[in-house]
Amino acid sequence: MKSFVLHCLAGAACVSSAFSEPLFNGKDLTGWKPDGADVWTFADSVLTGQSNSKKQGSVLWSTEKFKDFTLDLDFRFSGDVDSGVFLRTPNDQIQIGTSRSLKRDMTGSPYIGTTGKYAVEAHDVKGNLKEGEWNHFRITAKGSHYTVELNGKQVLDYSSDTAAKEGGIGLQVHPGVDMKIEFRNVDLVKG
């Protein structure tokens, strides 16, 4: 089911500008494929990624490919978690939770796989990220330019040298971590 996204300006009428598409059908993982361990479940409109007893990792990839888009999603976690959202390639990831290499929270920051480093650090995350509660990400990818909003506040404005022109969207359970992360309301606007 597609729904309109409304943009409203103060004192002006709301106008419809785009269609928002849910990326999950509300019942199962149709349209998504795990790359790695079978650690993903979908129930009651919530996608859960939970590490198995061997702490194997997995990225759940959309089978549909995207160019430019705005992705809205809610996520929730407690404790030590290392997750993220991959943008069109396994190389470019927006981090959720603790960086294994830096040993601190890097939520909203772009991790670039080929360099093994965070290109820049997201700002204004501390105090805005609510552990154990639902948080909202809005990630916009226009060509190589990424912006990230966390709970309505922009925390990242970054241009990637390694962005892919087209590809899937991936959600991660990091290997070697005993963790659980939940996602809901995963919607996308193309263009």
Score class of each variant (00 low, 15 high):
residue 85 V to W: 03
residue 99 S to I: 12
residue 101 S to M: 14
residue 95 Q to H: 08
residue 30 T to D: 15
residue 182 E to R: 06
residue 5 V to M: 12
residue 119 A to Q: 14
residue 49 G to R: 07
residue 126 K to E: 15
residue 174 H to G: 11
residue 46 V to S: 06
residue 162 T to R: 14
residue 136 H to M: 07
residue 66 F to S: 05
residue 22 P to D: 01
residue 15 V to K: 14
residue 159 S to P: 01
residue 55 K to N: 13
residue 48 T to L: 02
residue 59 V to P: 02
residue 3 S to H: 12
residue 19 F to H: 06
residue 84 G to F: 00
residue 30 T to R: 00
residue 123 H to P: 02
residue 20 S to L: 13
residue 125 V to W: 10
residue 55 K to C: 12
residue 70 T to L: 09
residue 24 F to Y: 09
residue 95 Q to S: 10
residue 62 S to V: 00
residue 89 T to K: 00
residue 116 G to M: 00
residue 157 D to P: 01
residue 138 R to Y: 02
residue 51 S to V: 08
residue 4 F to E: 07
residue 12 A to P: 02
residue 129 L to N: 09
residue 36 G to C: 03
residue 3 S to C: 05
residue 17 S to M: 10
residue 77 F to V: 02
residue 91 N to A: 09
residue 36 G to I: 05
residue 73 L to A: 12
residue 187 D to A: 10
residue 132 G to M: 00
residue 120 V to N: 08
residue 105 D to L: 05
residue 150 L to E: 10
residue 35 D to T: 02
residue 160 S to K: 14
residue 125 V to C: 03
residue 187 D to L: 14
residue 63 T to D: 07
residue 90 P to H: 04
residue 76 R to D: 08
residue 24 F to A: 10
residue 164 A to T: 04
residue 98 T to V: 13
residue 175 P to M: 09
residue 106 M to S: 11
residue 24 F to I: 08
residue 180 K to M: 05
residue 146 Y to L: 15
residue 131 E to V: 13
residue 58 S to A: 15
residue 7 H to K: 14
residue 51 S to P: 11
residue 45 S to K: 00
residue 157 D to V: 09
residue 106 M to W: 04
residue 65 K to C: 06
residue 48 T to N: 05
residue 19 F to Q: 12
residue 134 W to P: 07
residue 59 V to M: 02
residue 167 G to Y: 00
residue 110 P to N: 08
residue 117 K to P: 09
residue 166 E to K: 00
residue 46 V to E: 10
residue 186 V to M: 04
residue 57 G to S: 04
